[in-house]
Simulated assay, not measured.
Amino acid sequence: MKIENDPNDEVCELVNGVEVSLGELEDSIHAYLFKAVKNNNGTGILLLSDIFGSEDSFTRDFAYRIACNGFNILVPDLFHGNPWSKDRPRAMFKEWIAAQSRERILKDIWRWTKWMVDEFMAAGISKKLGIVGFCVGGGRVLEVLAQDTGACFGAGVSFYGTTMESLDVSDIKVPVLFILGDNDPLCAVSAVQNINKKIDGGSKVVIFQGRGDGFAHRPGSPEEDADAEKAFMIMREWLNDNLVV
């Protein structure tokens, strides 16, 4: 395991950002870790990005802000340096997404989960980890929690998760917070409500009227900014209540 300070980061008294890598050569995987400095509550959070990847500025800004509230946020590069880009022709999307192996991505997630267990739980800092995801990452949240069955993760947050309908969520043993808009063609309210009914343990669905995909972490208007702020506060309280308090 290798950790390097990012020379491009501005010094911040609240958050320290470092590059993290596991493995060697072609087997190596990378992530970015935001660690709270002054107000660190010892809790580790795994943040799964949308298709734009771990280096996307919106994802980094969101992770940074969570860390400013006392958490330690790991953002893995699940696309191995090849995230989707808005500059690419839309016709290339099917080819790109087909190359993103589900098995490989899940393997990476579990490798990083083990690292976080060793980093936070084995050290006696965190009792449980948290997991948060956007869009496709929001769908992975449920998949990971179903496989984990409460062993490592104590709570999850799924922001407008996609490809969730076919998942078996009956093995999820921890509470999940679902945040979505009612105008999202990729994440239907009815589907999320049906999934929520199958999860034991005090899960919750929060629906924002008139909002579509991505509003909470990449708002595109002053109105979305206001709802993004509300969504962040709801998530923060959820993480505090289920992992810290």
Rank of each mutant, 00 (worst) to 15 (best):
G42P: 11
G181M: 09
I199C: 00
S126F: 01
S54K: 04
E237S: 05
P7G: 08
I234R: 08
L142C: 03
A188C: 07
E26W: 08
L78W: 07
V206S: 06
S54I: 01
V136F: 03
S158T: 12
V117N: 11
L177G: 06
E237A: 04
S57Q: 13
K128H: 11
V192Q: 02
N39A: 06
A146D: 10
S49M: 04
K198L: 14
G214W: 02
R236P: 00
R111Y: 01
S101Q: 10
F52G: 00
A151R: 13
Q209I: 08
N8A: 14
S190F: 10
A36K: 11
L177S: 06
S54C: 05
N242C: 03
P175S: 09
A122P: 00
E237V: 05
D27V: 02
D77K: 05
G53L: 04
D184Q: 06
E24D: 15
V37N: 12
M121N: 13
D182I: 04
R90L: 12
S85Y: 00
C152D: 14
Q100G: 05
F134C: 07
K197Q: 15
G70D: 06
P76E: 13
T162P: 05
A98M: 08
S28H: 01
R60F: 04
K86A: 03
K114Q: 13
E165G: 07
E103K: 14
P222S: 08
L239M: 06
I195M: 11
W84D: 09
L48K: 03
R60V: 10
T162D: 10
W110T: 07
L145G: 08
W84L: 03
A151K: 14
T162I: 13
L167G: 10
R88I: 00
G17F: 01
R111H: 10
E10Y: 08
K230H: 08
S28C: 03
F232L: 02
R65C: 08
C152Q: 13
A91K: 07
I66K: 13
S126N: 10
P83V: 10
Q209L: 09
D184H: 06
F159H: 12
N41D: 07
E103L: 11
W96M: 01
H80N: 12
H30Y: 14
R236T: 00
P89K: 03
E119P: 13
I73T: 14
P175D: 09
V189R: 11
L47D: 10
A91Y: 01
L33H: 11
H80E: 12
G138M: 03
C152L: 03
S85M: 01
S126L: 01
E143C: 07
D171H: 06
W84K: 04
K114R: 13
E24L: 04
A146E: 10
E237L: 02
V136E: 09
R104D: 15
L25Q: 15
K2L: 08
L25A: 15
L25H: 14
T163W: 08
D27Y: 07
D108F: 03
N8S: 15
L48I: 12
V206Y: 02
